[in-house]
Write a protein that binds this DNA or RNA. Sequence first.
DNA 1: CGTTAGCAGTCGCCCTGTCCGACTGCTAAT
DNA 2: ATTAGCAGTCGGACAGGGCGACTGCTAACG
Lengths: 344, 344
Amino acid sequence: MLTARTKLILKYIVSQYITDAAPVSSQNVAQNAGLSVSSATVRNEIAILEQEGYVLRAHTSAGCIPSDKGYRLYVDSLPNLNLPVERQRLLSHIFMQVEKEVDEWLKLAATMLAEMSRNVAVVATPKQNDCRIKYVELVSLQDRLALLVLILVGPKVKQKLISFDANVSQAALTTAANKFNESFGGITARGMNPQLENLTPIEKQISDTIAQVMKLEDEQEFEAPYLDGLHLILKQPEFAGGKQMKDLIELVESRTLLKMIRPEQLKEHTVHVIIGSENKSAAIQNCSVIISQYGIPEATGTIGVVGPTRMAYSNTIPSVHYLSIILTELVGNLYGKQARSSSN
Amino acid sequence: MLTARTKLILKYIVSQYITDAAPVSSQNVAQNAGLSVSSATVRNEIAILEQEGYVLRAHTSAGCIPSDKGYRLYVDSLPNLNLPVERQRLLSHIFMQVEKEVDEWLKLAATMLAEMSRNVAVVATPKQNDCRIKYVELVSLQDRLALLVLILVGPKVKQKLISFDANVSQAALTTAANKFNESFGGITARGMNPQLENLTPIEKQISDTIAQVMKLEDEQEFEAPYLDGLHLILKQPEFAGGKQMKDLIELVESRTLLKMIRPEQLKEHTVHVIIGSENKSAAIQNCSVIISQYGIPEATGTIGVVGPTRMAYSNTIPSVHYLSIILTELVGNLYGKQARSSSN
DNA sequence: CGTTAGCAGTCGCCCTGTCCGACTGCTAAT
DNA sequence: ATTAGCAGTCGGACAGGGCGACTGCTAACG
């Protein structure tokens, strides 16, 4: 076990390395860490830290840099910080002013989070467990072409073109839509099948399409998440060499970023920090991820930050946390009564 | 004016530089360009090319690289190439198989184009001049919260939440929607105002929201375009140094890419090539853009490729062209019009 | 026993000089 | 007009040396 002073030195080293991105020397610690000892004493302590694997040295005569294990201790010993109140007010205010639209909220959250953390922010759409139909609308576009608009509980709107083999009038489409709306209200994909009786071939084709859209919606694990701040992270010195940058961008573009960074299970409404080699994906093993769930049990999304292990944890963790609270509130309001009345 | 042989040498230099990304020496030209002369003769010719500004030299004793002017002559002298027929068939086939959904087509087009050109592909949504209402739908979510679904001619579906000051029943919403559908069919944003008579305050609020959505839709010049291939372009040696990469990514993330690369006017259904310094935006002055319009007069979109000036023009131009034809056809079908087949 | 000062040793960085290879520019011959 | 040949130029790779920063160690100190 480390002594209190040793831990203090480690914490200073981590915070110093976070701001400077340069190896920390014993002199630096002795002079600025606030403990009145000489650099020689600090060196003795650092020797222990190195032995225990909390810090690394690039070579014999260089300052030390924190290891993942060092970051971990640093993060775990961080007090439970909150965003400054005026910051919170400002954020809430901005969210009030934006258009009332889920996508707008998420995009805004990504932009704000990227701006605050100076790193890549990722915000994934709230995902329902089993999507339920709220309303079906059918609009004729041409003789044999119609637009299906599916309003799901949430609310989420899906659209799809349907082309028929024969002419189908708007009247017929309206009739079909009414029929569906009578029997399909609040129904899930699985619940649809038993309802399909006495359908005309046209209606059969439509209901098949509806089922298909819903199946797709249920199956897809993630929609393309909102992403912002690539330009910020590229300014970090660790991405100066092309390799790391390319790895990250490839990951981002492959649209599997979220799958790669999300831990097996996120406990509700706590902020998780995954440091360097704790990551599953090799491409971001020198990155850290700060991530949290938001939303309500019926519809939960994910919000997080990806950046170099040398990131400003003490600022970023509260930012992620507070934004997850805001989004939870906004999404909760959407479901509001709806969620309660249909959940039993 | 350049002699035929000088032009031949220039073309060889350009094509060679495109494949190798390395300065081309006079020996290289003498041996491989297919004209049986010595390197000394070639040097004389290259001296002319350099004097006229078609090629540049990094320093006295180095091979030469094409200037923007050289690329321009090369591109202009390219024969009107078409994609190989089997390639065309393959592409068309893939587009037939994908989901019938405009967004899916565009995303697919971006991915295919990025893959074929090994560069960044950009596909912008077809933009209507003045959007027209096709159908209005209002769904109650909670006592005071409703979802407005606006189906525009095109078809495009817009959604927006409306929160009222008092309870509003689904029945009242349905009545309002019916009212709007009777008078608003095919109407533009400007055409709405005269129709607004005898409205309840609730209906007034709804119609205001509709007008607002349509105004926004008309005003926004570009939606976020589909983009793919960043990971490909980053493999190009010209982006090895961080600076250029950062510039490009910043441009991409700022969502002004399209505005920056699109020339003042695109003639319908011709492929435009903008080389290096011909670009408006300084951030891509060492990039070339190959871009074309697609769609029909009522709804035109943009499809293009951004890459280093040293890009494979002879492959990429036909790719952009053929994809623009496919998209034109698909969009045309949606509007129920015969797509104008482009003449080439 | 913890702490400290001092000194030797190590290593990266930067600057310099040198050599080598690649290519051009020029000139004189064909 | 074309060519061969030669001198000149430039960048890249490499090695050596000085410099600065920092550590590791040891012996002395309270």
